[in-house]
Computed example of a mutant assay.
Amino acid sequence: MIKPIPVAVFKAFSLLPVFFSAALCLPKADAAETLPASTPPTAVPFPAMGSCAKVAFHNPSSPKWGLPLYLCHYSAADFNALKAQPVLDKSWLPNKESYQGLADNLLDSRLPSIALAHGQRWYRMLSAAENSSSAVVQLTELISPYLGCELQLTDTGFTDPCLGANWDKLGRLLAPVSDLPNQSLRQFPFRLYDNLVVLGEADATLNWQLDSFAPDLQDATVPLLERIGKGLFWGQLDEVTVLWPSLIAKGPLTKRDQVELFIMAIAKEQTAAVLFLAAQGLNPQATNEYGDSALSIAKMLENEVMVQLLSELGASFDSQAQ
């Protein structure tokens, strides 16, 4: 029997934003990178203009799960025609001002696609007011941003068989989904070589990379506990250390708070952050009202490094308590 995802994970990742879908411009042929001597294991054939193909990304650290993806190569005319079609989310293309907002809220796609635990995401701006003059490559995750069901292809785009939600071929939501927030489909990073697409690698030709932005932990409009959780998640330990006294001044942390902070620290395998929490006297064995602990979440994510670390810290904590 498949164990359901613990509520604590949903609580800890309740800040997941409405992800913007985006397309990535295909660099000119003379700017294409040279294929390295050994072909990366995540390389797939580059589809011909006007065609698409289903591919899968196998994360080296999580080889059990192959993340299903849909790779398309649009001509400029085809892409502009698709972009001109009416959809629910008319501002699906991100702009420079939206980047920091995305970074402030972005956590990870670990829930809907565990195999992408360490995948990076970024976007290249395509002006909504102008037509694209270059061919466009789009690599879309075939995982619903809602309940995590695998998407099905349709004549008009994508559909979620669990909720009945529909997106167009560019991944833009076509109609509201119950009481859930509007979400475009997520796009997956890649690097282009002459006739290959290497999945999950950084592309130096892109102007903006979302992972280069760090959450603003000084934003007082965001609850302090939430800011510290983000800082632990992103490894901003220096800033977390500065904010920590203000958090402690508010009173002892509840078991639920301790669990949430530990989960944020283990989510991206931030060893230093886990050790920091333990050094502050937080209990790595703490459980919340649902019976979830940082250790149980680490086991669910099959992160052996975090499982071992939490087990050692838990044994030490128990010994000190006695």
Score class of each variant (00 low, 15 high):
residue 2 I to A: 14
residue 3 K to M: 10
residue 4 P to I: 05
residue 5 I to V: 15
residue 6 P to C: 08
residue 6 P to K: 09
residue 13 F to A: 02
residue 22 A to N: 03
residue 23 A to T: 04
residue 31 A to Y: 11
residue 33 E to H: 13
residue 38 S to Q: 15
residue 39 T to D: 09
residue 47 P to T: 11
residue 51 S to I: 08
residue 61 S to T: 05
residue 62 S to K: 01
residue 63 P to S: 01
residue 63 P to W: 00
residue 69 L to W: 08
residue 70 Y to K: 07
residue 71 L to S: 04
residue 73 H to I: 03
residue 77 A to F: 00
residue 78 D to N: 10
residue 80 N to A: 13
residue 83 K to Q: 11
residue 86 P to Q: 05
residue 88 L to Y: 03
residue 92 W to E: 03
residue 96 K to G: 02
residue 97 E to S: 10
residue 98 S to V: 04
residue 101 G to D: 08
residue 103 A to M: 09
residue 104 D to N: 15
residue 106 L to P: 00
residue 115 A to F: 07
residue 129 A to S: 12
residue 130 E to Y: 11
residue 133 S to Y: 00
residue 135 A to K: 02
residue 138 Q to I: 06
residue 142 L to N: 01
residue 143 I to K: 12
residue 145 P to E: 09
residue 146 Y to D: 09
residue 159 T to E: 15
residue 159 T to P: 00
residue 160 D to N: 14
residue 170 L to V: 00
residue 177 V to I: 13
residue 177 V to Q: 14
residue 181 P to A: 09
residue 181 P to S: 10
residue 186 R to G: 00
residue 187 Q to A: 13
residue 187 Q to F: 06
residue 188 F to I: 08
residue 192 L to C: 11
residue 193 Y to I: 06
residue 195 N to C: 09
residue 197 V to C: 09
residue 206 L to K: 08
residue 206 L to E: 11
residue 207 N to Y: 06
residue 208 W to E: 14
residue 209 Q to D: 10
residue 216 D to V: 04
residue 217 L to M: 10
residue 223 P to S: 08
residue 227 R to A: 03
residue 231 G to M: 05
residue 233 F to H: 02
residue 236 Q to M: 15
residue 241 T to M: 09
residue 244 W to A: 03
residue 247 L to T: 00
residue 250 K to W: 07
residue 252 P to S: 09
residue 263 I to P: 07
residue 267 A to M: 01
residue 267 A to E: 04
residue 271 T to I: 12
residue 277 L to C: 08
residue 280 Q to D: 07
residue 281 G to C: 08
residue 281 G to A: 08
residue 284 P to I: 05
residue 286 A to N: 07
residue 288 N to S: 11
residue 289 E to Y: 01
residue 289 E to H: 10
residue 290 Y to G: 03
residue 291 G to I: 11
residue 292 D to G: 10
residue 295 L to P: 00
residue 297 I to D: 07
residue 300 M to R: 14
residue 311 S to T: 13
residue 313 L to S: 02
residue 314 G to W: 04
residue 315 A to F: 05
residue 319 S to I: 13
residue 320 Q to Y: 11
